[in-house]
């Protein structure tokens, strides 16, 4: 039974790779996405089978899982169906934010974080936290809720650098010392603040590239969550998206003739973001 489950997960991972590859060309792109979606459906169904077989899930956990997933799935479905073509990039950014948030919550919620998983647990909340708030700010800028022009926070860069150091120190303390969950919480708060500070100074015109970069971050955070849970599908899919997202970010930046470093430095571009969608 365990072998069968591993083989099914492997097949799902293959479908993600094939799906992503087919999305390189216009003629096969839609089929690629469908293959990837089919793999995802199988992966989720297989996990249901695993949970039912193991009988370790409490009733409360089942209720929380089913209610949360049903509400979230419905919200995502409605948002994706109703959204205007021009508003799609900010919706993708919102979906990216919640994906990163979910990855961070996995490390925070995992009560059996062993010493082995401590490093990846810290990386998970740090990367997931940054991408959660960063993507929310990016989505807000594209939607016009936050002004699209570059917003310079006084001493924004030194503050981000200091917060990064604080997060790193807390992370090292967590890994080396006792696995106190308050330390992990501190890393989370610092990461959430850094996400906001990194994205605010970037102009709306550069947002698609930033969203792609944050997408790659989320992939990496999901892979780290896979380490925490020792789950191969998460590690493979997360690593895949992390690397492919990084390449895609480079391609998008090249297409706009804007070096990634210059984009991250911020201070450029107007609020008119609708004009820059690639699709």
């Amino acid at each position: 039974m365990n072998t069968a489950i591993h083989l099914v997960y492997l097949a799902c991972a293959v479908s993600f790779v094939i799906g992503l590859h087919l999305m390189n060309a216009p003629a096969t792109a839609r089929r690629g996405n469908q293959i990837s979606a089919a793999g995802m459906a199988v992966a989720i169904f297989t996990t249901v089978v695993v949970l039912v077989r193991d009988h370790t899930v409490t009733t409360g956990a089942v209720i929380a899982l089913v209610l949360g997933a049903a509400a979230g799935g419905l919200a995502g479905l409605i948002a994706a169906r109703r959204v205007q073509m021009t508003a799609m990039p900010q919706l993708v950014s919102l979906f990216n934010a919640v994906g990163g948030g979910a990855a961070a919550l996995i490390a925070l919620g995992d009560r059996v974080v062993s010493n082995q998983a401590a490093v990846t647990g810290v990386l998970d909340v740090a990367i997931g936290g940054v991408t959660f708030t960063g993507s929310l700010v990016a989505a807000g800028k594209l939607a016009g809720r936050i002004p699209g022009r570059p917003i310079t926070v006084p001493f924004g860069r030194p503050i981000s650098a200091a917060l990064t150091l604080v997060a790193a120190a807390l992370g090292v303390w967590f890994v080396a010392g006792d696995a106190n969950s308050w330390l992990l919480g501190g890393v989370t708060v610092a990461a959430l603040a850094v996400g906001v500070l990194l994205t605010l100074p970037i102009g709306g015109a550069d947002m698609p590239v930033v969203i792609s970069l944050l997408n790659a971050f989320t992939g990496t955070a999901v892979a780290m969550a896979g380490f925490v849970l020792d789950s191969t599908p998460l590690i493979i899919a997360g690593g895949l998206v992390g690397a492919a997202g990084a390449i895609l970010t480079k391609l998008m930046a090249d297409a706009m003739n804007r070096p990634i470093i210059a984009i991250m430095a911020g201070g450029y571009g107007t609020g008119d973001a609708v004009a820059v969608t690639g699709g």
Binding site: N24, A25, I44, V92, G99, L105
Partner: peptide, 24 residues
Amino acid sequence: LHTPLMSGANAIHGVVLVGVMLLA
């Protein structure tokens, strides 16, 4: 295809749902 590809990759890291189920 840049934006659809980004969106497609974004959907793939939705596999985090499997992780949440394992966390349960």
